[in-house]
């Protein structure tokens, strides 16, 4: 690190390489997801780079590096917890709204409903058919369609809204 602070680029590259290996080994048990782990290691490397002026030559290097990694790990957990909460709130809102758009209101008009579903764009029609008529769960639909579960829920929700509007228009006519 002393060589680094004097501007030795090769020493710095070697040091960061070693840090990367140590940090990956340290963070792997805490972060299960490979992508998250990679992002976190990169964040730690950037933080080490930003804080390199605070390294005190008379002190050992590892406690300095681990303190930064610890800080970033806590930050990462806080961020992912917040994101998870937001996502859950969003999905439960969707569930609620989906219940509000009650398609069974149009009972007895299955022909009309079928026509409206056919008029939907191909992917949306297929999603509605699978989740609402054929009885697949969002997870099963997501696997078959190669989408994420939340993307399926969002798409179905939008399709149902569109469908409801269309049925209302038809009724008004």
């Amino acid at each position: 690190m002393l060589q680094v602070q004097q501007g030795d680029q090769d020493a710095y590259a070697e040091l960061l390489g070693q840090c990367e290996r140590i940090l990956a080994a340290m963070l792997r048990p805490q972060v299960g997801n490979h992508e998250d782990l990679n992002d976190l290691v990169q964040e730690c490397l950037i933080s080490i780079h930003k804080a390199r002026h605070t390294y005190q030559p008379q002190r050992p290097f590892k406690p300095w590096m681990f303190a930064i990694a610890n800080y970033r790990l806590k930050d990462h957990f806080r961020g992912s917890y917040r994101r998870k909460n937001l996502e859950q709130a969003f999905l439960s809102n969707l569930e609620q709204e989906k219940d509000d758009c009650d398609v069974t209101y149009w009972e007895g008009r299955s022909e009309q409903l079928k026509e409206c579903i056919d008029q939907l764009p191909g992917k949306q029609a297929k999603l509605v058919l699978m989740t609402k008529i054929q009885g697949y769960t969002a997870k099963e639909t997501a696997t078959q369609m190669g989408m994420t579960e939340s993307a399926v829920k969002v798409a179905v929700h939008r399709s149902l809204k569109g469908l409801t509007m269309q049925l209302k228009d038809n009724q008004n006519e």
């Binding site: 680029q9 090769d10 020493a11 710095y12 590259a13 960061l16 780079h49 390199r52």
Partner: peptide, 17 residues
């Protein structure tokens, strides 16, 4: 990670505070 390290190592020099 490799290219990040390469980018960062170009700015090795710093003044300690």
């Amino acid at each position: 990670n490799r290219s990040l390290i390469e980018t960062l190592s170009r700015e090795a020099e710093t003044k300690t505070r």
